[in-house]
Design a protein around this nucleic acid. Structure first.
Length: 489
RNA sequence: GCCACCUUAGCUCAGUUGGUUAGAGCAUCGGUUUGUGGAACCGAGGGUCCCCCGUUCGAGCCGGGGAGGUGGUACCA
């Protein structure tokens, strides 16, 4: 019979203890900020009916590629959620009679995308969202910026992030000025080209706006087919960002003059600019950036993206931009799908895994590897009840303790303690039991002794002399506690 | 989806023009050392050379097809 090969599903990953520790600390910090703005907790299921997610090919009885979908017993299509926003809109619509409106909630959880994974891109990843449903006020959008800025600050990234804000209405206005009709393929391609600015620079975007662009691998991306004049209008617009938010508003106002929709977008940004100043958010922290587009699906107003400003070196030693760790915007049409009226909404989503690796790159990751438990070495199996009592005594003193449950003698047990990161081992055999004592070994100190010892005998003798004490059973918990305190400093 | 590259031990890799029994380092396990982690030394286990078909007296190596992976690109709610 052929042996089963253990393999993890492509694009998914396991999370060992060390990474979970850092992640929990991060989520707790962000949650504190979210709650300080009045957002409340919500959890929704990992699956929804596909029509809730809003992806169903009209020409096909199969849900769109890109989501993980299956048919349940009633032949209804259900799918793993691909973001937390669509489930939120379902929840609000379903409970609108009793919810406080505007409804402000935070939520974290895994989302799933059935697509080809890339470097740093997985098919399951964690988002941490805040959204405000039922308010058209620009204060909600300004608070999106603030909540992100405060969260990133609280994580130690103050001064190393830039929150870039734009408004879809302004983009629409510029397209109008360039003579591109809304909703056409030309318009969509143009917006995508603008979104590629940070990746390909002005030359690349110009190619994408006009004839198309061929990448290094030889793949060709079709251009928007604009004439040179229209392309220049777009490029000039993208460069309109100024040092201050108000100056950028002035420049954008010029760029969209005559387009009612564009001017409305600029007016919204001006309102947001006032609010940001009132919240003491500097021009460098939250900036207006005409090249921000975000997804084409559902954003209707202000959009934003949080970017880490430092560069990182990749494996090939090249420096590159870290890129964005959070994004969001206003989506006034999404909840209305379930109601007979429109319900305005806006929110942001932190990419938890991206942000964790950004913190790692910035050296701000809380790696404080959780200290392992005290290991109770099992010497004499006939005395198991006594080892259980030892462990219970330690736990009663609030010291995490574990009894070795494997097989083998002292050597494998201490090795196990090593791998587990145990700071201390309790050793009790015939001698100790007869004398009513336990031996307590400081494994951290022992490891230091090992580094200097030359022969095996030296090591053993020295480690025993320096890193081990034998005390009366009644003194055990207190001695361990002192030893743990020593190790911690 | 499209393009390029890659696949040999648990991991990282070497393997000559196509030639006998496919190697190394690390890791693992055992011993030196029955109650003390590391180092050192000695020893051991571990292989469908990704799969199938073809060429050949002979294929890890050459050809065709497939699968899986990596990177780029497209899409990204």
């Amino acid at each position: 019979m052929s042996r089963l090969v253990p393999r993890i599903v492509k694009g998914f990953k396991d999370a060992p203890a060390a990474s979970l520790h850092a992640r929990r600390r991060m989520i707790e910090t962000v949650r504190g900020v979210y709650e300080s703005f009045g957002f409340e907790a919500l959890e929704t299921p990992a699956v929804e009916y596909v029509e809730t997610l809003g992806k169903f090919l009209p020409e096909s009885d199969q849900p769109d590629a890109g989501i993980f979908a299956l048919q349940d017993g009633d032949e209804q299509w259900i799918a793993l959620r691909y973001d937390l926003t669509a489930p939120l809109s379902r929840y609000v619509a379903q409970n609108i009679a009793t919810l406080p409106l505007p409804f402000r909630r935070y939520q974290t959880g895994s989302v799933f995308r059935n697509e080809k994974p890339g470097p740093g891109r997985f098919r399951e990843f964690t988002q941490f969202d805040v959204d405000t449903v039922g308010s058209a006020s620009m204060v909600a959008d300004a608070e999106n910026c603030a909540v992100l800025a405060r969260s990133l600050e609280a994580l130690g990234l103050g001064g190393q992030v830039r929150i870039a804000v734009n408004n879809r209405k302004i983009l629409d206005g510029v397209l109008e000025r360039a003579g591109i009709a809304q909703g056409t393929l030309e318009a969509v391609t143009t917006l995508r080209a603008i979104d590629k600015f940070d990746k390909f620079g002005p030359e690349g975007v110009k190619l994408l706006l006009t004839t198309g662009r061929k990448d290094e691998s030889g793949d060709f991306t079709k251009g928007a087919g604009l004439d040179a004049k229209a392309a220049d209008t777009i490029l000039a617009f993208m460069a309109a960002g100024q040092a201050s938010r108000l100056a950028t508003c002035d420049a954008l106002g010029d760029a969209v003059r005559g387009s009612a929709r564009g001017e409305e977008g600029v007016a919204e940004l001006r309102e947001i600019a006032d609010l940001l100043s009132a919240m003491n958010l500097a021009d460098e922290t939250v900036a207006f950036d005409p090249a921000i587009v975000r997804g084409l699906g559902y954003y209707t107003g202000p959009v934003l993206e949080a970017q880490v400003t430092f560069e990182i070196k990749d494996e090939d030693g090249r420096t590159r931009q870290f890129g964005s760790v959070a994004g969001g915007g206003r989506y006034d049409g999404l909840v209305g799908r379930f109601l007979d009226r429109e319900l305005p909404a806006t929110g942001v989503s932190i990419g938890v895994d991206r942000l964790l690796s950004a913190l790692d790159a910035a050296g701000r990751l809380d790696t404080g590897a959780a200290q392992g438990p005290v290991l109770v070495v099992v010497f004499d199996r006939a005395q198991m009840a006594e080892y259980v009592r030892i462990a219970e005594e330690l736990r009663a003193a609030n010291i995490p303790a574990e009894i070795f449950l494997g097989t083998g003698g002292m050597k494998p047990q201490l090795k196990y303690a090593d791998r587990k990161g145990s700071p201390v081992a309790i050793i009790a055999g015939g001698d100790e039991f007869a004398a009513g004592t336990v031996s307590i070994k400081n494994l951290v100190l022992g490891a230091q002794v090992a580094a200097t010892a030359t022969t095996n005998e030296d090591f053993k003798a020295e480690a025993k002399a320096k890193a081990q004490v034998t005390v009366a059973r009644s003194q055990m918990a207190a001695t361990v506690r002192t030893m743990l305190a020593d190790i911690a400093t």
